[in-house]
Design a protein around this nucleic acid. Structure first.
Lengths: 193, 193
DNA sequence: TCGGTCCGGGACCGGTCGGTCCATATTGAC
DNA sequence: GTCAATATGGACCGACCGGTCCCGGACCGA
C-alpha cells in the first residue's frame, strides 16, 4: 500500500464548483475549468464523482444543507413567534437577493438550466424547493393562518419573485418591496388573536 | 438575377429557434439543431443573423412584441377599470405558467443563462422586464394606488414567482395562489373610493 | 437556350465539451 | 534501502460547439 488517504480533496472540488456554478451557471462552466482552479488532476474529480451531473447534484445537496443551517438558526432566534419566524426566512432570502454580486438562487437557476425531470441536478433543486414549501406550510400553520397552504404558496411566490427579480433587475428592482409584501401577506392570512 | 426573393426565411428560422430555445433553453440548443429543423442551409442563418447571440436577441425581441400584443389586448378589454386591467395582466402570466408544458419565462430564463450584462440576449430580456415593470407602474397609478411603485414592484414579485415556481414545481405548486395573492395586493394598495 | 444568382448541403476550422486512461511520482511495508 | 501499490497530473479520446467557406444544382430573366 501507499500514499496519503486523500483528505480534503472532495471538499476542495466542491468549494470551487460552488463558486463557479453559482457565479456563471452550470452549463457555462466546464469540468476542465473546475479542475484547473482546484489545482488537482482530472482523475481526482472522477474518483470522487460519477460525472458532471453527479458533481452538480452534490453541489446542490451541500448548498441545501448549508442553507437550512442558516435558516434554522434564523428561525430558532424567534422560537416564540411563528409569524416572526416566517419573516425571518423571507429576510434571509431578501438579504441574499440584495447582496452585491447576486447571481440568482442555485436551485431555481439549475432547474431552469436542466429541464429534464430526471436530471440529478434538477431533482436536487426541486427537492430543496419542496422542502422549503413544506417548511413554510408548517410555520404558517403554527402562526395560526386560516389557510396555511395558501399562505405558504403566497410566500413561495414572493421568494421566487425575489430570486428572479434580484438576479435580473438587481437590488434596486422589485426586490425592494419584498419585506413589505411578505408582512402584508402574513397579516392578511393570520387573523388577530 | 435569379431565384426566389428569399421570402419567409427569417421568420422560419425564428419560429424554430423560438420553439427550441423556449423548450430546452438557449445554451442547450446548438445552431446545427436549429438549421436542421428549418430545412434551410447554414448560410441562410448567418446571412439573416450575425451569430447565435444575435439570433437569441432577435428571438426575444419577437417574443417581447408578441407578448405585448396579447397583453395590450387583454388590458384593452377592461378599459374602464385599471385595477381590473392589472389583474388581466397577472391572469395572462398565470395562464401561461399553468399551461401543460410550461418551461419558464424566456426573459427570466435567458437572463439566468447569460449573466454578462453586455450579452445581447440578456439586454433584451432585461429591457422587456423593465418595460413590464413600467407598465404596471402606470396601471397602478391609474388604479389609484397610494404607492404605485410599491404595488408595481409587489406585482413583479408575484409575476417572477409565478414563472419561477411554475417552471420548477409545476401547475400544482405555489402558482395556484397567484390570483388570490395579486387581488389581495391590489386591494391593499388601492384605497376604496 | 443560356448566363447569372441564389439556394441547400456539407466539408472544414479551431476550440471546448465530458470522460478515459496511462506514465509517473510518492508513499508505506518490510 | 528496496519494492510494490496507489494516488497523481495531464495527455488523449470522440463528439460537438459556433462559425466560415465552397460546391453543385435549381431557378430566374433575357
Amino acid at each position: 500500500m501507499a500514499r496519503k488517504p486523500a483528505s480534503g480533496t472532495r471538499k476542495r472540488i466542491l468549494d470551487v464548483a460552488a463558486r463557479l456554478f453559482g457565479e456563471h451557471g452550470v452549463r457555462a462552466v466546464g469540468i476542465q475549468q473546475v479542475i484547473d482552479e482546484t489545482g488537482l488532476g482530472k482523475s481526482q474529480l472522477y474518483r470522487e464523482f460519477d460525472g458532471k451531473d453527479d458533481l452538480v447534484a452534490a453541489w446542490l445537496r451541500d448548498s441545501d444543507a448549508a442553507w437550512w443551517e442558516v435558516a434554522d438558526a434564523a428561525v430558532a432566534r424567534h422560537a416564540e413567534d411563528p409569524a416572526r419566524q416566517i419573516l425571518a426566512v423571507i429576510e434571509l432570502v431578501y438579504d441574499g437577493a440584495r447582496s452585491p454580486g447576486f447571481r440568482g438562487c442555485p436551485f431555481y437557476n439549475t432547474s431552469t438550466e436542466f429541464r429534464d425531470p430526471g436530471h440529478p441536478g434538477r431533482r436536487e433543486a426541486v427537492t430543496h424547493l419542496e422542502r422549503l414549501r413544506e417548511r413554510l406550510l408548517t410555520l404558517a400553520g403554527a402562526a395560526g393562518a386560516t389557510d396555511p397552504q395558501g399562505l405558504s404558496d403566497a410566500l413561495m411566490l414572493v421568494i421566487g419573485g425575489l430570486y428572479a427579480n434580484g438576479a435580473a433587475l438587481g437590488p434596486d428592482g422589485p426586490v425592494r418591496q419584498a419585506l413589505t409584501t411578505a408582512e402584508a401577506l402574513v397579516r392578511l392570512h393570520c387573523p388577530p388573536r
